[in-house]
């Protein structure tokens, strides 16, 4: 099947539709016209840049360039995890815990899938490695951000219960046990839901893309199943690691609850 070429002119036509939406929201005084325009421009610039980077990367398919790209992706994702938390650990811990957990789980799962399951030649071939890592990081990032946000927020709200249990002589891990389990579950629920709804409610993006690009649906489905399993494993282990490390950091060496290690809550809505 031939892939139909998209011309810049037809893209410009769609951009006019976005512009029309911006004008309508402006007239209706919804106050999002600026946001729509800025976000649309960002989409164009960011994706064009990434397209350029990928084209270059595909031409020089060297391991160190792929590794550099992966490192840049994990750092940006780590910053995003930190930005999405209402009360975050101070002193670089929010960034550190998020980034290290994402690095360990996403990279381990990606390398395992590339070398053992998919097996491209060479194993780090960027056409496979970068999109795979991107999907893993994107989902793991969401899981870790949700899990850590839930952990720190609940610990703050239930600080009296945690301290009450410490006073009764419970070890720190018992005093925060329920909150920690709850935070880990929160981080995993989106991927579990995505698996449960796949194909019934939503056609997953990667499968849709592959079918549009001419892959037989049966093969696209196999790839999608593989990706969803990898995402679930990566998100699950990443969230468990991040929440475990984050909850330890809420206590000091004398097992005291140290909420002074959290930044103040930001204004929400």
């Amino acid at each position: 099947m031939q892939i139909i070429e998209l011309s810049w002119w037809s893209l410009a036509g769609t951009a006019l539709l976005v512009l029309a939406l911006a004008v309508c929201t402006h007239l209706a005084r919804l106050g999002v016209a600026r946001e729509i325009t800025i976000a649309a421009v960002r989409t164009v610039i960011q994706l064009a840049l990434v397209g350029f980077v990928l084209e270059t990367l595909f031409r020089f398919a060297a391991l160190h360039w792929v590794a550099l790209m992966g490192a840049a992706m994990v750092l940006v994702a780590g910053r995003e995890v930190m930005a999405r938390q209402n009360r975050r650990l101070t002193g670089g811990w929010a960034f550190g815990i998020g980034t290290v957990s994402m690095f360990v789980s996403s990279f381990a799962v990606a390398v395992l899938a590339l070398t053992v399951v998919i097996g491209p030649e060479p194993w780090y071939r960027p056409q496979y490695a970068i999109p795979l890592l991107g999907m893993l990081l994107g989902n793991t990032m969401t899981g870790i951000a949700l899990g850590l946000d839930r952990l720190t927020d609940t610990a703050w709200q239930q600080r009296h219960v945690i301290e009450g249990r410490l006073m009764l002589g419970e070890p720190w891990s018992a005093a925060i046990g329920g909150i920690r389990r709850d935070a880990m579950r929160t981080g995993m629920i989106p991927t579990i839901n995505a698996m449960a709804a796949a194909g019934v409610v939503s056609l997953p993006g990667m499968m849709t893309g592959q079918i549009l690009a001419g892959t037989p649906p049966a093969l696209a489905v196999k790839y999608q199943i593989l990706i969803m399993f990898l995402i679930t494993v990566g998100t699950g282990f990443g969230t468990v690691a991040a929440v475990a490390a984050g909850s330890r950091r809420l206590f000091d060496e004398r097992e005291r609850l140290r909420l002074d290690r959290l930044s103040p809550a930001r204004q929400r809505g």
């Binding site: 239930q158 009450g164 410490l166 006073m167 009764l168 002589g169 070890p171 720190w172 004398r254 097992e255």
Partner: peptide
């Protein structure tokens, strides 16, 4: 003494203790 063992021996009862 490990902190949790200390608190089990030296027990603080606050004015309003939580129930969970």
């Amino acid at each position: 003494v490990p902190a949790y063992r200390w608190r089990r021996r030296v027990m603080l009862l606050p004015a309003e203790a939580p129930w969970w």
